[in-house]
Write a protein that binds this DNA or RNA. Sequence first.
DNA 1: CCCTGCCCTGGACGGATGTCAAGATTTTCC
DNA 2: GGAAAATCTTGACATCCGTCCAGGGCAGGG
Lengths: 205, 205
Amino acid sequence: MASPATVGRRSGVDKFEERRRELADAALLTLADLGYARTSLRTIADNTEFSHGLLHYYFADKTELITYCVRRYKDACMQRYEGLVAVAATPAELAVACGEGLAATLADAPLMHRLWYDLRSQSLYEEAFRKDVAEIDGGLQDMIWRLVSAYAELTGAEPTTSPSAAYALFDGLFQQALLRYIGGADTALDELKDNCAALLPRLFV
Amino acid sequence: MASPATVGRRSGVDKFEERRRELADAALLTLADLGYARTSLRTIADNTEFSHGLLHYYFADKTELITYCVRRYKDACMQRYEGLVAVAATPAELAVACGEGLAATLADAPLMHRLWYDLRSQSLYEEAFRKDVAEIDGGLQDMIWRLVSAYAELTGAEPTTSPSAAYALFDGLFQQALLRYIGGADTALDELKDNCAALLPRLFV
DNA sequence: CCCTGCCCTGGACGGATGTCAAGATTTTCC
DNA sequence: GGAAAATCTTGACATCCGTCCAGGGCAGGG
C-alpha cells in the first residue's frame, strides 16, 4: 500500500491541500526560528496541535516537506513584493521609495529573510532544493528588474546592467543589511535605504 | 579534573596547537564537502587518521571546534586575498584585473566559498559564530576597499561609496556567481568578471 | 447498524549524534 | 629505566533523529 502522501487524493483534494499548507506554515515558523540545521520534524509538530506522525501522512519525507515550504514561502514572497514599485513621479522619488520599500520588507520579517538565505545556502548542498530556490531567485530578480525598468522610464535612459547583475547588487546590499540588523546594528535600515537609493542611478552610467 | 581542552598547556604548546590546526583543517575539508548541517564529529574524525574521541581532547565541544575552524579559514582567506590587488597601470586594467582576480578566487576553491556563505548564514542563528564571522567580513571589506582605493588613486577621483556598501555590492556579485557556478552554469565566471569590471567605475559617480 | 475509508495518535525501530570516562599507548623527563 | 604526564583509542551513555506501523476514533453510506 502506497503512503497517502505519495498518491493522489480521490476526493477532498482541497481539504488535503489545505492541511498541507497549514502544516507547512507551521514548519516555516519553526524553520525561521531555528534554521534548517536545527529544525526537526518533531519540533515542527510541537508547533502545531498535531502529532509528529501526521507529518508523514501529509508529506512523504522531510525533503518533500521542506521543498513544499520553500515553494510556499515563494508564493508569499512574490505576493508581497508585487506592490513594491509604488507610484513615483520623479526618479529621485523612486530611488528613495525603493530604499524605503526594501528596508520596510527587511524590518517586517527579518527572520523570514534569514531563513531564505539559509535555505539558499542549503540548496548548494542539497540538490533537491535547487530548482525551487532558483525559481524564487528568478522571481526576485524580476522584481528588481521591474524597479529598474520603472526608473528607466522616468529618466528616459537605458539601464547599462543585466537584470541578474542588478539583482545581485541589490541582494548584496540587502543581505548585508540583514546581517547587521539581526546583529543588533540599529543603523542597518537607514544604511540600506541610502545604499539602495544611491545604487539605482549607478545602474545607468 | 578539567578537560585538557579547557586548561592551558604547560609545555609543548606548539605541539598542542599544531594538532588543533591539523584537526581543524580536516574538519574544514569535511565541512566544505557536506555543509554545516550534515557534518558530525564522527564524520570529521573519519577524514583523519584519529578516532572521534580525540576531538574532545583538543576541543571542548563542537561549537569550539567550528569556531576554531572559522578562525582558521579566516587566516587562510586573508592571506590569499592579500595579493589580489595586482599592479595595474590604468584604471581599466585594474577593473579587469579585479574581475579576473575574484573569478580566479571563486574557481580556485568554490567549495570553500560555499562553506563561507553557509557559516555566515549559521552565524545568524548561532550567536557563538557571530564574532568571528563579523571579523572575517570586516577583513573582506578591507580587501575590497583597498581595491577601490587603488582604483581611486589611478583615476584621481574620490569614491562616492562607503567601504561597507562597496563590499556588499561586490559580495552580491560574487555570491550570485558562486550560486550559478555550483549550479553548473559555465558562464558564471565570465559574467562575474564583466560585472566586477563594470561595478568598479560605478562606485565613483 | 455495521462497514469502509479517512484522519490522526502514540509508540516503536534502527541508527546517528554529542559527550564522556576508563584504560591503553606513547612521550617526556628525572 | 622507571615514574609521570601527555596523547590516543575504545566503548558506552543518553538523547535525538527520520521513518514506519498498529490501531483508535470518526465520518458517511450501504
